[in-house]
Design a protein around this nucleic acid. Structure first.
Length: 462
RNA sequence: GGCGCGGUGGCAGAGUGGUUAUGCAGCGGACUGCAACUCCGUGUACGCCGGUUCGAUUCCGACCCGCGCCUCCA
């Protein structure tokens, strides 16, 4: 039985999909006006693990993650760049797909783009107006009337009175209440726009997710996820829009990832302290970044630091060492082990990847012991377990040599390194240890570490 | 101010009413020409004060500290 923490009820609940065996999940994806940063990576990886694990447990998962490709920030950035907004969004979408692939994030089943759902968006706004939940203002905007939805605030636990009194929200003449938010924004002269019953304009920020999720997954679906800062207002507003438009419960389980921090401050656009994924991947192997993200629980806050990434690298290296130089048995031939059961036990508890990783280490330890004792067949079976459990969290799927020898940052080619290793082997045979050590030191200076074993010497990047 | 989350060993990070998290780093030993890798062994923990309990790091309350959202942000 899988238990998931539900932001709506603020507790872990037994997960029961609406349709047995089938999971419908929607995750808020990117607004594509810039490269993805580490915070995006966290959400991508977190829900990638959720999807992989649910499938591992036998569920048929329909995973939808949208792309918001029309929005004020996009238009502003395109304008600054002097390019068409579609050229900006095309570029950023392609970059996002590259980043995802490098992090081992599987593609969602559907990736709806807001601009392809304008008709659905307009239809939903019409439903809201017809139901008395929205109104067209004199300026051509259409607003959602927050007071028309008694449950407003149920996700973020906010009281409408506090929101209005706090009123850091836009106070605009056209709004009936300061907490009302735009469903449709009238276009200014020369701005990108679509035709609508209220004049030319574009969708507001929140409506596209309501329209796309409903269109792709139905009025009510199982899981809706996203980053921590979407909880309010974005997800709160989605609930209001969808439940008022359809008359049905929108989502059963709300999941939110924890924030990434840098130097004890939240990493955010407004603070300007964010790292893009591609920036980080210049310094660290992608799988190390993924390991770093998976090594703590998806809801906890994590601190990005060089020290933490370096440690993730050392730890992942240990796991790959266990797999080095042996061919895992075929997984189908290895029945469920105690490790598989333990892994499922911790993952069933709200996707506890930190606990799952401790199981991975236990398996690696077992492999190393078996190899020490010459139990090669048993070691191959345990290796199969390690690889199949690693797959569920998206780790350890590379050939170990590829992991060890990629991105050396060294000028030496593999051939040159092999030649030096051979020269060292010759020197050792002649008991010329001074020369052997000189070669080893020279390689170390260039970021190459040697590992000696009975079978010979292998190398890896430091 | 409103709402919410958290304080675990040198560091990272799970978890539990009484019994080993795990990893990194450290220390001792084995292996090694010496190292690295690996193996064996090993130390240091649950913010503070009360309460409940036979027993609390784990439940309850107060306090201190940190953080997030309330504004574009994943």
């Amino acid at each position: 039985m899988i238990r998931i923490y539900n932001t709506l009820t603020q507790k872990k609940e037994e997960f029961r999909p609406i349709e047995p065996g089938k999971v419908r999940m929607y995750v808020c994806g990117m607004t594509v006006y810039d490269y993805c940063h580490l915070g995006h990576a966290r959400v991508l990886v977190a829900f990638d693990v959720v999807t992989r694990y649910l499938r591992h447990r036998g569920y048929d998962v329909e995973y939808v993650r949208n792309i918001t490709d029309i929005d004020d920030k996009i238009l502003r950035r395109a304008d600054e760049n002097g390019e068409a907004y579609t050229s900006l969004t095309d570029r950023m979408i392609q970059a996002m797909h590259e980043d995802e692939a490098r992090l081992g994030v599987l593609s969602p089943d559907e990736e709806p783009r807001a601009t392809a759902y304008i008709d659905d968006i307009i239809a939903m706004i019409q439903q809201l107006i017809a139901g008395g939940h929205a109104y067209a203002a004199d300026n051509g905007d259409v607003y959602f009337s927050v007071e028309s939805f008694p449950d407003y605030g149920k996700l973020s636990k906010k009281k409408l009175d506090d929101l209005i009194a706090g009123a850091r929200v836009d106070v605009q003449e056209a709004k009936r209440s300061p907490a009302d938010f735009a469903l449709w924004k009238a276009a200014g002269p020369g701005e990108v726009s679509w035709q609508s019953p209220w004049g030319d304009g574009r969708p507001g920020w929140h409506i596209e997710c309501s329209a796309m999720s409903t269109r792709c997954l139905g009025n009510t679906f199982d899981i809706h996820g996203g980053g921590p800062d979407l909880l309010f207002p974005h997800h709160e507003n989605e609930i209001a829009q969808s439940e008022c438009a359809t008359g049905h419960t929108f989502v059963h389980t709300w999941m939110h990832a924890g924030a990434i921090r840098v130097n004890k401050e939240k990493m955010s656009k407004s603070l300007g302290n964010f790292f893009t994924i591609r920036e980080i991947l210049e310094t660290y192997p992608a799988e190390v970044v993924r390991y770093f993200l998976v090594s703590s629980h998806y809801r906890s806050q994590v601190d990005y630091s060089e020290e933490n990434l370096a440690e993730a690298g050392r730890t992942l290296t240990r796991l790959y060492h266990a797999l080095r130089g042996i061919v895992p048995a075929s997984s189908g031939e290895v029945p469920e082990t105690e490790h598989d059961r333990r892994f499922a036990e911790v993952m069933d508890d709200d996707f506890n990847t930190a606990g799952a990783i401790s199981v991975l280490h236990a398996v690696a330890n077992e492999i190393n012991q078996l190899r020490r004792d010459g139990e090669d067949q048993a070691a191959r079976r345990s290796a199969a377990v390690l690889v199949r459990l690693g797959a569920v969290v998206g780790l350890l799927q590379q050939d170990p040599e590829a992991f060890f020898q990629a991105d050396t940052g060294s000028d030496l080619t593999a051939e040159e390194i092999e030649r030096m290793i051979q020269a060292r082997a010759d020197a050792r045979k002649d008991k010329n240890f001074a020369e052997a050590d000189r070669i080893r030191d020279e390689l170390a200076d260039k970021g190459i570490v040697l590992d000696d074993s009975r079978e010979g010497t292998t190398w890896r990047r430091a």
